[in-house]
Design a protein around this nucleic acid. Structure first.
Lengths: 197, 197
DNA sequence: CGCTCGTTTGAGAGGACTCAAGGTAGGTGG
DNA sequence: CCACCTACCTTGAGTCCTCTCAAACGAGCG
């Protein structure tokens, strides 16, 4: 929980319903607003010409996103899209700065949140260092399991397309690699569902 | 300038001379210290088995590095190595927290510094999205020119190996791509020096 | 002058990507 | 309850191009 919802409302924050697949902002847009999820899911991603995309972050209930460009007054380097029906509170830029000013403990909160994001991004770099798709996939599966606290009997809750978008691989490559890994006993596939320990 | 040097000294910070190529910490080490460069250069990078490395950040006079793992109490995801003879002030973890506690404006400073780092890392992702080496190299050259404020008649002050380490490509691939680009007039190479506008 | 580090070039192999087409599963509506 | 639809998964064939390995050249510095 980045900022207490009562505070957001007090300062004039407006909650809005967002349908799955709707966009909050686009890569290159100027950053005018603070966004915080009441519930739902949002992903931040960059994209190339053609459909190739790279997921830079996923956010869920209570989390905020897109603050760094807002603080810096720079255009968004990513696009934000809802991956579920969601409810989002939006705040004007100056209001966000007012809250930061009035609540030092919130500022401190963001410091730690940002530290985590930097850390995650640095860890993710392991994916780009991996030379083979198998290594990349193992890295992302490990990260996912840790982050989402999945136990060993739980299927990985992401589609092959999503794994492709996390790793920058193509969907077919992910599928072929997963098949090979399952043949070699490194993972288990049951009814298209992925199990990784 | 992250933290005023007088403050660092007052709180017991110790300046140390570091020779080029010396290591400050290694990937996987626990984070016990705050590091700030008085002068010199340090790079943070991750590495694979084999010599493949990926530069995650470069730092120079007055900048600090490696704070996120320190704040979070997590092991370093990168290795830190001096790329020049340098002078570095080191501080114990608790002392760093004391300074943060005593100087709210320093805390605020870090908030913005972190925001910039997140922004830079997000922008860098464009490199991983690029499918061809040429695209990756153009992206990194553009970023370098902007960041280092190079004018158009200035050669790129990085070796081909370094460009390889920034982009995750192999040195030979960088060389061959640069040669092709120069043949196509996209860049100029004079006496092995690179010019890009 | 000789060392060291970076640059350059070549040949060859492996493998990711592209394009195309068909299969599967879960949800919706009649 | 079944047919349909959509989104996701799967497979195949072929091309391209990056990586690997090896060897030699160039430049800067003591």
């Amino acid at each position: 929980m980045q900022i207490n919802q009562d505070i957001l409302i007090t300062y004039g924050g407006i909650a809005k319903k967002i349908k799955k697949n709707e966009y909050l902002f686009w890569e290159g847009d100027p950053a005018y607003h603070y966004y915080q999820l009441v519930e739902g899911n949002v992903k931040l991603y960059s994209t190339n010409e053609s459909d190739k995309e790279l997921v830079q972050g996923t956010f869920t209930d209570g989390q905020s996103f897109g603050e760094p460009p807002l603080l810096l007054g720079l255009p968004y380097p990513c696009t934000a899209q809802a991956t579920k029906d969601s409810i989002i509170i939006r705040l004007r830029r100056e209001t966000f700065f007012n809250i930061l000013h009035d609540f030092p403990e919130i500022k401190e909160n963001f410091l730690y949140t940002f530290a985590e994001r930097i850390y995650t991004k640095a860890s993710f770099a392991q994916i780009w260092l991996a030379r083979t798709p198998e290594e990349k996939i193992i890295r992302i599966l490990t990260i996912i399991k840790e982050r989402d606290n999945l136990n060993n009997n739980c299927p990985i809750p992401y589609t092959r397309q999503e794994i492709a978008h996390f790793t920058g691989l193509r969907t077919e490559t992910v599928i072929r690699t997963l098949r090979r890994m399952s043949e070699e006993g490194k993972i288990v596939i049951k009814k298209h569902k992925l199990f990784y320990n």
